[in-house]
């Protein structure tokens, strides 16, 4: 394959035109296996990559006072059926800066693929970092995805992340994110995953609301069917005055699938407030019968309800 062919193949699976990469104002980085196929940086945004035997280490720095107007695209691809891809990310978002990243993790032919992400993210005071991770997997359930991240937010910083499987079977997804929030900072971590077959979904997200008036929301929306399993262990700890947080977990279970949710909330300051809400169960019968009374079959109704939950 020439340099352009893997890029074309990877982009054929994601809802972003490869032409977006020709926009001089759009920064991007495309990685296949352990090779950087292409990248563009912008003033104030520096990307340094190092090839590892089984992946890439990328050090990404957004200089202070830099605002990147257009969404930055990262594509982490594995075109082969088998292999390991380790992505080590060291991200530093400078003071008063702002950036939004869409990471497209594309394993369309996965039979036995491991994608391991090890991220350390520092978001300095009053900076804003949004990270949307969209996965495209094959249909065999052969992808195993292990994203871990430690995120540190400075004062008044904002961090938002969403993990979503857009297409294909989960295989194994084992998310482990931990965020520590300084004064007035805000973090939101959301995962939306639909498991079937013998897929395994594990989510451990935790937030330390250590700064005064910091805010954290952990949201998990999961649907499991057939023999899939889901475990959600989300934890919010509020130790500072005025810290506020919410843990929200909704899981729909069908067939022989199993789901569990263990929301842990700890409050160690009398003026902090953290709530949690967990609902696990089958599809709501009233929702289903409403749609069936419009002519949808049971399966069509369930699909639509799950689509809504995960949207």
């Amino acid at each position: 394959m020439s340099g352009q062919e893997p890029i074309k193949e990877l982009f054929s699976h994601i809802p972003v035109s490869p032409h977006a990469l020709s926009d001089p104002d759009t920064a991007y980085m495309v990685i296949n296996e352990n090779k950087v196929l292409g990248h563009r940086t912008l003033p104030g945004l520096e990307v340094r990559t190092t090839q590892l035997p089984d992946g890439i280490k990328a050090e990404i720095e957004l200089k202070p006072e830099t605002v990147i107007a257009k969404t930055v695209h990262f594509c982490f691809g594995m075109i082969p059926e088998k292999g390991i891809q380790r992505i080590v990310l060291r991200i530093h978002i400078g003071k008063n800066s702002k950036i939004a990243v869409q990471a497209h993790c594309v394993f369309p032919n996965a039979v036995d693929i491991q994608h391991i992400m090890d991220a350390e993210i520092q978001v300095d005071d009053n900076a804003e970092y949004s990270y949307f991770e969209r996965h495209i997997h094959g249909n065999t359930g052969g992808a195993r995805v292990y994203p871990t991240a430690k995120i540190n937010l400075g004062e008044s910083a904002r961090f938002k992340t969403e993990f979503e499987l857009l297409k294909g079977r989960v295989g194994v997804i084992d998310i482990d994110f931990e965020t520590t929030c300084a004064r007035n900072s805000v973090m939101e971590m959301t995962a939306r995953i639909n498991g079937t077959g013998n897929d395994v979904i594990k989510i451990r997200e935790s937030g330390n609301l250590a700064g005064e008036d910091s805010v954290g929301v952990l949201t998990s929306k999961i649907a499991v069917r057939e023999n899939a399993t889901a475990e959600v262990n989300n934890r919010l700890i509020a130790t500072a005055e005025g810290a506020r947080g919410h843990v929200d977990c909704k899981e729909i279970v069908r067939d022989s699938a199993k789901a569990s949710a263990v929301p842990v909330v700890e409050v160690r300051h009398p003026r902090a407030h953290v709530t949690h809400e967990a609902a696990i169960g089958s599809v709501d019968s009233k929702q289903m019968e409403t749609l069936m009374s419009r002519g949808l079959t049971e399966n069509e109704a369930v699909e639509l309800i799950i689509q809504g939950l995960l949207s």
Binding site: Q287, L304, G308, S311
Partner: peptide, 15 residues
């Protein structure tokens, strides 16, 4: 019924 995430447009067009 309430439908989390399901838009009015999708709800109406469904049937």
């Amino acid at each position: 019924a309430r439908f989390e995430g399901l838009t009015v447009e999708k709800f109406i067009t469904a049937g």
